[in-house]
Write a protein that binds this DNA or RNA. Structure first.
Lengths: 303, 303
DNA sequence: TATATTGATATGCAAGGCATATGAGTGACA
DNA sequence: TGTCACTCATATGCCTTGCATATCAATATA
């Protein structure tokens, strides 16, 4: 029976409990007196309990009415809270946001972006994880993550991709290597050198870019060692295993015995934010608003 | 806008949030699919926020929907709680009960009654106060107290009165008094003695009863001192100020120099529970149920 | 005793919720 | 690639029900 109670009953009840007068309560509710009588009676029927003792002269709450009054206002407060929560979530001010980033992105502005976002949207739970570009793109497509910061992604009809930053590529070479001190070292000079590279599937775009540089210099690099990500590639260079071509930010890792040389022709890699085009998540939009505010101009959407 | 939300919307929303399928959710709700679509849409309009991302193939919650789901179930839980509270209050299992009792009643079964009631109805807040019979009857009439334990009340059309216990009256006299050791002392023997009595308005029924005993013995008692209640009457007897006629329970006060003598003819005083006949309070009925269970038979209603 | 106040009841209307029928978009499978 | 099945949205009509107007009944006050 009581599962037919509606909020209207509670609103009417509370008005009457405040006024203790059908006429005044009705006019406060913007209705006539008879429907108020009806609805109160209906509520009492649904509850199988009298809420008001009333004569034609006086209206007062019963014990049950007093108990119901406190509870009913809790209900209406909960409704108001629910509406507020929906609006906050609709504006992206709450919820959970799973952000992935390629490891080396942390050397750029990302930490600053995260701090700002935390500050501006404290109710959003940020779930941050390091992840190579390739797996990120998969995760974005199947919904495992909401937003990814990737290196040099290819175009994808399912994903919205916005370039956030750019940085030049560098040749990484052991300081003791004979070529390390040659002025104006070019990619072509590395034709005979052993290369250290990451597996293609971890960062397919960047991988293709490096391979393209070599191809345009007229050779296919001889990859003697693969490492999990950019980090470890540098350590292999330092160990003298081979040379590599890497984004400039790895310089900040501070390996002593590695020299980083600019690449003529200003080859550069893009760091982009990517998210699913289908799932329109307000939190994602909110996060990207912060990103836009910090990296400012220079951002551009593609496809 | 959102003040037109009804519980129906929340119930439908939660069903759909569980099933993520309009057809199944509708059949669970016992309605057809189209009205469910309509009501969900109406709810989204009222909230001005989309709660579900839906294609003709898949239904899933938006961020706002997820936020609303948690809040909406809180609302329904609050409604269920309100219904439960009303029923408890309707059965007298909750609320506040203001009980007054004449001081000497505490020597009888009242403490036991209170313990049992507290045990059986732990959610009822008991407000206990000591109060003479006269003020109790006033308080019951104007609603200051809900239930009173009084001595020898007169009939009253506004009040329901049930005799709970009976006890004999005793003559109270100082042990050093010449009459204290006379065998078969009667009320008539006290004709010339100074009397200690309480003011008429504090316990009008008992006062009239004592006066009646004397009148039937052929005299009007000479009252030399009045005291606030039965307690203090005894102390005045012990001080040798006069004699008195009192309920037997005052013996338990344990004054050393007072002797209590039975009254021939077995004059006795009644202790009654009294409550307002107009205000039908379930808690009062619950309390009286406990009283009935403890004092058992021998209770009787009167006028 | 008459009157004003106030809650309940009667009746008619209109809004809105629900059911049936149908349309349109999407994924699956041949 | 085309067809089919599935599923959600839309259209339409009915019927419930909430609300308004009119009226009644009860009670307190003058």
């Amino acid at each position: 029976m009581s599962d037919k109670i509606e909020l209207r009953h509670l609103r009417y009840f509370l008005a009457l409990a405040d006024e203790l007068h059908f006429g005044r309560a009705a006019s406060r509710l913007g209705i006539a007196q008879p429907p108020l009588s009806q609805q109160i009676r209906r509520l009492e029927d649904l509850l199988e309990t009298r809420l008001f003792d009333r004569t034609s002269r006086r209206v007062e709450l019963t014990d049950a009415g007093r108990a119901f009054r406190a509870e009913a206002s809790r209900v209406l407060a909960a409704v108001a809270g629910a509406v507020g929560a929906v609006h906050r979530a609709g504006r992206g001010e709450t919820g959970e946001l799973r952000v992935a980033f390629a490891a080396t992105v942390m050397f750029l502005d990302l930490p600053q972006i995260i701090r700002t976002f935390r500050d501006r949207f404290p109710l959003v739970h940020l779930d941050l994880r390091e992840m190579p570009t390739g797996p990120q793109l998969d995760g974005l497509r199947n919904g495992d993550i909401d937003l990814g910061f990737v290196r040099e992604p290819g175009a994808d009809s399912e994903l919205e991709i916005v370039t956030v930053m750019r940085e030049p590529l560098r040749i990484a070479i052991h300081v003791g290597h004979p070529l390390a001190s040659r002025p104006g070292l070019s990619v072509a000079d590395l034709a005979e050198e052993p290369f250290v590279l990451f597996p293609q599937e971890l960062a397919p775009g960047l991988h293709a870019q490096v391979m393209g540089l070599c191809r345009r210099a007229g050779y296919a690099p001889r990859v003697v060692e693969e490492s999990r990500e950019l980090y470890t590639s540098v350590s292999l260079v330092e160990a003298g295993i081979g040379v590599s071509i890497l984004p400039a930010s790895v310089e900040k890792l501070g390996w002593r015995n590695v020299r980083y040389l600019p690449i003529p022709g200003e080859a550069e890699t893009r760091i982009a934010a990517a998210w699913s085009r289908n799932r329109a998540r307000p939190v994602v939009a909110a996060f990207m608003g912060v990103v836009r505010g910090i990296v400012g101009t220079g951002m551009s959407a593609e496809r």
